[in-house]
Structures are given as structure tokens and as C-alpha cells.
Design a protein around this nucleic acid. Structure first.
Length: 663
RNA sequence: GCCGACGUAGCUCAGCUGGUAGAGCACUUCACUCGUAAUGAAGGGGUCCCCGGUUCGAGUCCGGGCGUCGGCUCCA
């Protein structure tokens, strides 16, 4: 058997050699450092024999790799291998966590415990009447440390399904039994599952595909972080389990750095920045609904203005539709049946009414109130519509998930022939919008959900249309099966927040159903009525969410054109107030948003306060500047950048605002 | 909605096993008139989230509610 190492050198090994043998053949240092091996991209335990011609990679000439394409590629995984190595010890740590919890809480039922981005978790069902909280984590950690110090080897064994079931039934571990039964049931009929692998460390044995590091001692630094609830199998109708989250690293320094990064990210949380910068706040009197201070309203309105300015040349016409509709409208749209619990419903003169959770039925209503010719299409109605959704209390999240929000919403009514171009134009508009802010998004194509309305043929058609729009533009996307809207498939655009959580911003959704339900039509060239297609689209998503994400990505340093206060005039002493007022007046002439700090305070103090408010420009004025008609410019974060005439500065600032410079 | 935690001045937070509330910043006033991240002093400010209970006495203990945070589910 011959293997090829990452540097291209060949490594001959006897048949049945293990990963550990391979590492030892390369060098004793590597043998000690080795955690696992990667063979042709597959991670394996060091103790397992390496694949050979009769191995799982199937037929091929002796000593050659899969499909006869040359020797197997072999890489020894060590602490220096980065992410795969971390995943390995985090998975190890999850086993040790379960081991420790079983020690401390006899009778606990274990379910699953995978490594995840940045850490690991394990889900448990504690015995009746027992619950744990963050306060218990320390004791569990202490127990885990004992198992790590004991250097317990991870031992793999393959057993028959019957043996495994018998074992976990005897141990009264019903979740493991269910997992094995599902493995068997869901197996590919051509490759039935008759064996499963178990891993044992110390007295603890878990159903696990592996691989694992050689022993528990490789977990150098770990920490349990939080306790949370999680439904078994992610199903809200099933048992709520207790999830313990933790993370692990190869050194205490790495762990410390990771924890500090999280702490740092919290400082950029929009829920902290918003009130701190005087943008918005929340009150118990209106849970899930933001209150906007003047500075925040300024930012909000600037974004709405941007949408309008970009929409007009792209053929959008702004409309206004009511907030409150008779339930009959929601019955036509299907919202009454599917979302009534999440709508704010009221009553007027014995009529059931509901606040709009979406603009589309209103836009459909508006469209249908007049006849349309094929010559008018596409019709593109836009509306910064205020929506209310009674989101479950546990899902509210600052500006990112609210009960009241304004979408940069639009609906396009067009013919089948116009559809491709219109979807493409929506994507162009979206990317042009994101480019203003210099942000990147991740694309997702979501297909038909289980609960849906409309014929299968329409779904086939509309899914194909979105897919081809993405592919003809060469865009990368993730496929999200079953995650579409109840009326049609969609392309979603996602971004992450300061803690790496993903949020949907833009969306482009195809809809053959509402036109059907609202009986929307146009008169064709043949003088007959035709049904058209409808596109729902929002680009920023909601202005609330967009501002939240933008704050986190800019660390509160909004671009100059958008920031509420662009410049603050800082007179050195009270005798410079007159000149400072002249500067302010000059800035006001060119519509700059400027303020004067007229407090009787030191320059340092005024600078510090302006920096904390993240004002982009601080204009220091004293005797020198007054004499020469100048301002001494300090840029946020950068410090003093020299003096300019007041006119020159005002012009530059005005240009930055006009160009929406992405600084 | 579900699991766990938390809720004290505008903000960040102290307040031990129950004895009637405190700091820093912010705010007000006075003095200082200052050249690029905190001048000093004095002062005002609290139904300790709400409602009930236990107790001679509750910010502290117990129950319920509301809100927030971390997850889960959901997200038209």
C-alpha cells in the first residue's frame, strides 16, 4: 500500500496499517502529536486500519486510491490542523460532558451531543423534578476535568444493531434506542444498516459515528457556557430537553481569546449601541416595538429616501394602502387560516378586522380595483408599509425581530414572459442597494413547504424560474428545501449579526397563488382577460432589522451620509463661540447635519464626548481658525487630520453626503 | 409559545445568612476659559418591574403576572 502525503511525497505502508502506524512511519514527533488521520478527505480514528484495495473505497488496482485515480491521499491531523482538529476535541468534550453529567445525575437520559461552530453541546433529559442551571456548570466542569486528567482512551467498536439496541434498552436510554431505530428505518435500501459504531471512554459508552482523538487528555482547555432548552429532534411537539453548551480549545490562551472576542462582540450589539447613540429604545408598554428618538428617525428616514431614490428610475411607483382590513380580505389571502394567532385582531361594529402583517393583500386589492391592459405591465407598486405581527414573546430580539416594523416592500404584477427579467431586475436592485453599504449577503433558494396553497404544477414552474434566474447570473446559493412561503418559493438574502447569528434581509418571492385568489387579470392584445404573475420583494427587509444589522457591522460608526450628526463644532473656549456659530451657519447652508458643543468644558472633554457619540467629524475652532476662516478637522477614530477653510470642508462633506460615500 | 437565568437612580452595577438603599458615569448649580478621548466642588434624583403571601419587619424568602437575556420551536 502506498499513500500520498500533502507535500506530495509517497508513504509506503503494510496492509492493515493504522493511522497511528502512518504517523509513526513519518516521525516520532508526529506520532505523539497525531489526533486523527484524513484519508481522501475522510476523517478517521488513528487506531483504525487504513483503507486498502479491499476497503470501503471499492475496487481498483492494488495500492491505488478511489476509482483508480492514484494513491490514497493521507494527512495526519494534529493540533495545528485548525478547524477539523478543533471539531475533533469538541466532539470529544461533548462525550466527556455526557460522562460527567451521568456521574452527577444518575438516571439522566442522554440524546445527542455534536460539535458545532465555536463549540459543542449535549442534550439531556433530567429525571423528574431535577433541573440544572448555569450555577451547576462549575460542578459539571470539575467532574469533566477529572475525566480529562484520567486520560481515558476513546475505544471504537462496531456492534450489530441488535446488540446496540439491547445495550441501550438495558441502560434505559430511550433516545439512543430511537436514534438506532431511525438509522435502520431511514437507511438506503441498497445499503441496509446492520452495524453501528460505539465509542467508549472510561465507563461511558455512546452511540457515535466518530471519529475521536486517541484520548480525553487531548482536550486541553474547555468551558461550559450555558444551559438552554431544546426540543428533542427539533420538534416543538416533543420532549423539551436540557442543552448544555460549551467550547474547547488546544490552549487556555485560545479559550481566553475566544471568550474575549465574544465579550467584544457584545459591545457591538445593536441593542446596546442604539440607546447609547440615542437612536432608539424599547419600553415594557410596547414589547417588541421600537421607539425612535430624533437621531434614529433621521437614520430611518434616510434609508426610506434611499429606497425611493433607487426605486424611481427602476420603474417603481409608491402607493399607500390601509393598516386595518376586514377579515374577509385575510380569508381570501389565506392569512386568516394560517396566521390568525400571529395577527393583531380587533373588532369594529361587529366586524372582525386585523392589522396588516403583510402589504401584499392590500396591493392585490388596489390592483384589482381598476382594469389593466397588457400595455401597463409590469406594474410595480412599492410601499414602505408598516406591518404588525404578533410574534411569540420568546422570539423577540431587539430590532432584528419585532412586532411592528416597516418593510421596503414592493409587488410586481407582470406577464409570464416578463417574469425572468423582473426577477433579474430585483436581484440587480438588491445588490445595488447592498453595494451602497459595502455589505455582502448569502443567498438561499427556498422551495415548497409542507403547508402550502396552489397546484403542484405552479410550484414546479415557479421554483424552476427562480433557479434559472440565479444560475443565469452565476450566483452562488444554498438550497433550502421546504422553506418557501406558503404561496410560493423565494430567494432570500441573509447576513449575520455581531454574534454570528444569521438574519434574512432581502427576499424575492414568486407567487402564482395570490393572483388566482384575488382574481387579478389584465386584458391582453387578444382582448381576452389573462392571469398574471406576482413577485413579492423586499431588499433591506425591514428598515428596523437593516439598521440593527448595519449598526453591528459598522460598530455604530454609520457612514457619513447616514449618520445622524455628521459634524460637531468644538470651540476652544467661550470667546470662540461667535466664530463657532458662523461655522455652524455655513454648514447649515449646505444642509450638513452639524451641532455646536457650546458647553463650558475642556476641548479634551468635548472631543471625548463626540468620539463616544461616534460623530464622524469634530471641527475644533480657536483663535487660529477664526483668523483664517478655517476649521481644524478631527476624524472619528483617526485623530487630527489638519485644517481646511470652512467652505472647503462644507463642500467636501456635502459631496460625501450626496455620493453616499461608503466610508 | 417552550427550557433556564435575570429585573435596584437616565446608564453600568454593589447591596452578606430578612432590620427600611449605595457607587461611578449622566443631570443641575458654582468656580475654572481650557488646542484634539474625562477640570474641580456642591447638589438633586429611587412605588428596589407589578400583584399577592409568609413575617413584628421583605430589595432580600414564597406564589402568580409582565418584561428582558441565552437557547429551542416559529418567522407570511
Amino acid at each position: 500500500m502506498e499513500f500520498e502525503l500533502p507535500d506530495g511525497t509517497k508513504l509506503p505502508l503494510p496492509d492493515q496499517a493504522t493511522g497511528a502506524d502512518a504517523a509513526a512511519a513519518i516521525g516520532p514527533g508526529l506520532a505523539r502529536a497525531a489526533l486523527a488521520v484524513k484519508v481522501d478527505g475522510e476523517l478517521r480514528d488513528l487506531s483504525r486500519p487504513l483503507p486498502n484495495s479491499s476497503g470501503p473505497h471499492g475496487p481498483g488496482p492494488q495500492g491505488s486510491g478511489p476509482n483508480g485515480s492514484g494513491p490514497h491521499k493521507l494527512e495526519i491531523i494534529t493540533e495545528r490542523s485548525g478547524e477539523p482538529a478543533l471539531q475533533l476535541i469538541r466532539h470529544d468534550a461533548a462525550h466527556v460532558l455526557a460522562e460527567a453529567v451521568l456521574d452527577l445525575y444518575p438516571g439522566v437520559k442522554i440524546s445527542i451531543g455534536p460539535p458545532i461552530d465555536d463549540g459543542f453541546y449535549y442534550d439531556f433529559e433530567f429525571p423528574e423534578g431535577v433541573s440544572i442551571s448555569d450555577a451547576d456548570l462549575e460542578a459539571i466542569e470539575a467532574k469533566m476535568r477529572q475525566h480529562v486528567a484520567a486520560d481515558e482512551p476513546f475505544v471504537r467498536e462496531e456492534v450489530t444493531v441488535e446488540q446496540a439496541l439491547e445495550r441501550f434498552r438495558a441502560e434505559d436510554q430511550p433516545y439512543k434506542v430511537e436514534l438506532i431505530e431511525d438509522l435502520v428505518r431511514n437507511a438506503d435500501p441498497d445499503h441496509p444498516v446492520d452495524h453501528v459504531s460505539l465509542y467508549t471512554n472510561g465507563k461511558f459508552t455512546d452511540l457515535c459515528r466518530g471519529p475521536h482523538a486517541p484520548s480525553t487528555k487531548r482536550i486541553r482547555a474547555f468551558k461550559l457556557q450555558s444551559v438552554a432548552g431544546a426540543y428533542w429532534r427539533g420538534d416543538a411537539n416533543r420532549q423539551m430537553l436540557t442543552r448544555v453548551y460549551g467550547t474547547a480549545f488546544f490552549s487556555a490562551q485560545d479559550l481566553q481569546q475566544h471568550l474575549e472576542r465574544i465579550e467584544q462582540a457584545r459591545a457591538n450589539d445593536h441593542r446596546r449601541l442604539g440607546p447609547q447613540l440615542g437612536l432608539f429604545g424599547f419600553s415594557d408598554t410596547a414589547p417588541g416595538m421600537a421607539f425612535w428618538y430624533p437621531a434614529g428617525a433621521q437614520v430611518f428616514n434616510s434609508l426610506v429616501a434611499l429606497s425611493r431614490e433607487m426605486g424611481a428610475p427602476r420603474g417603481y411607483s409608491e402607493v399607500k394602502t390601509p393598516q386595518l382590513y376586514d377579515s374577509s380580505l385575510w380569508k381570501i389571502s389565506g392569512h386568516w387560516d394560517k396566521y390568525r394567532d400571529n395577527m393583531f385582531v380587533t373588532e369594529a361594529e361587529d366586524r372582525a378586522m386585523a392589522l396588516k402583517p403583510m402589504n401584499c393583500p392590500g396591493h392585490c386589492q388596489l390592483y384589482s380595483m381598476r382594469p389593466h391592459s397588457y400595455r401597463d405591465l409590469p406594474v410595480r407598486y412599492s410601499e414602505p408599509g408598516l406591518l404588525h405581527r404578533n410574534e411569540p414573546s420568546g422570539t423577540l430580539h431587539g430590532l432584528l425581530r419585532t412586532r411592528s416594523f416597516v418593510q421596503d416592500d414592493a409587488h410586481i404584477f407582470c406577464t409570464e414572459e416578463q417574469l425572468q427579467d423582473e426577477v433579474a431586475a430585483c436581484l440587480e436592485f438588491a445588490f445595488a442597494t447592498y453595494a451602497v453599504f459595502g455589505i455582502d449577503v448569502r443567498l438561499e433558494l427556498s422551495t415548497r413547504p409542507e403547508q402550502r396553497i396552489g397546484a403542484e404544477a405552479l410550484w414546479d414552474h415557479s421554483e424552476a424560474a427562480l433557479k434559472s434566474a440565479l444560475e443565469t447570473h452565476g450566483l452562488d446559493y444554498d438550497l433550502n428545501e421546504g422553506d418557501g412561503a406558503f404561496y410560493g418559493p423565494k430567494i432570500d438574502m441573509h447576513m449575520t449579526d455581531s454574534l454570528g447569528r444569521s438574519w434574512q434581509l432581502g427576499t424575492v418571492q414568486l407567487d402564482y397563488n395570490f393572483p388566482e385568489r384575488f382574481k387579478l387579470s389584465y386584458t391582453g392584445a387578444d382582448n381576452a382577460e389573462h392571469r398574471q404573475v406576482m413577485i413579492h420583494r423586499a431588499l433591506m427587509g425591514s428598515y428596523e432589522r437593516f439598521i440593527g444589522i448595519l449598526l453591528e457591522h459598522t460598530q455604530g460608526q454609520l457612514p457619513v451620509w447616514l449618520t445622524p450628526v455628521q459634524a460637531i463644532v468644538v470651540p476652544i473656549s467661550d470667546r470662540h463661540l461667535d466664530y463657532a456659530r458662523q461655522v455652524l451657519a455655513r454648514l447649515a447652508e449646505s444642509d450638513a447635519r452639524a451641532e455646536l458643543d457650546d458647553r463650558t468644558e475642556s476641548v479634551s472633554r468635548k472631543i471625548r464626548d463626540a468620539e463616544l457619540r461616534k460623530v464622524p467629524f469634530m471641527l475644533v475652532v480657536g483663535d487660529r481658525e477664526a483668523e483664517q476662516g478655517q476649521v481644524s478637522v478631527r476624524e472619528r477614530h483617526a485623530g487630527d487630520v489638519g485644517s481646511l477653510s470652512t467652505d472647503e470642508f462644507a463642500q467636501r462633506l456635502s459631496a460625501m453626503t450626496k455620493n453616499r460615500a461608503a466610508n
